[in-house]
């Protein structure tokens, strides 16, 4: 049983994992670390959802170009999440409005939900990880 859970794709227990992303992408390491953990969770075939709120929404902004700053542009990786069956990407309406952003500004398709709706989503999870 324990072996099954430790093996990617091994058919172990599936839990609902929610990742809450609230930090902008390059100023701190949170966003990149979150993305790595999300991909690991997905490799273990867990049921993954992601929330982007506050400055975390900027992780998904189109047009990121890090060539002149010598950092890794990891925004294309969000487009690869679909291949790992990570398709439940939610952005908070209040945070989008506060930043003048719409889903057209983002690199991946997202579902816009209000804070209250996201609160319901949180209650309906097995594990919540904040970044």
């Amino acid at each position: 049983m324990a072996d099954e859970m430790m093996e990617p794709g091994g058919g172990g227990v599936t839990k609902k994992f929610l990742y809450v992303n609230r930090k902008a992408p390059y100023g701190t390491i949170y966003a990149l670390e979150s993305l790595e953990v999300v991909l690991i969770g997905a490799a273990f075939e867990q049921d993954v959802s992601m929330i982007f709120a506050d400055d975390g929404i900027y992780q998904l902004k189109k047009g990121q170009d890090t060539t002149a700053s010598d950092m890794k542009n990891f925004s294309p990786t969000y487009r690869a999440l679909e291949m790992y069956d990570v398709e439940k990407l939610y952005v908070e309406k209040e945070s989008m409005d506060a930043r003048g952003l719409t889903p057209d500004d983002l690199v991946v398709p997202v579902e816009v939900k209000t804070a209250a709706e996201l609160g319901d989503l949180m209650e309906n999870q097995d594990v919540i990880l904040s970044f």
Binding site: R22, A53, D54, E92, S95, A115, G119
Partner: peptide, 12 residues
């Protein structure tokens, strides 16, 4: 830090 205000928007 705005964590509390975002938390209070979402908390049931």
């Amino acid at each position: 830090n705005n964590a509390l205000s975002t938390c209070l928007r979402m908390a049931k």
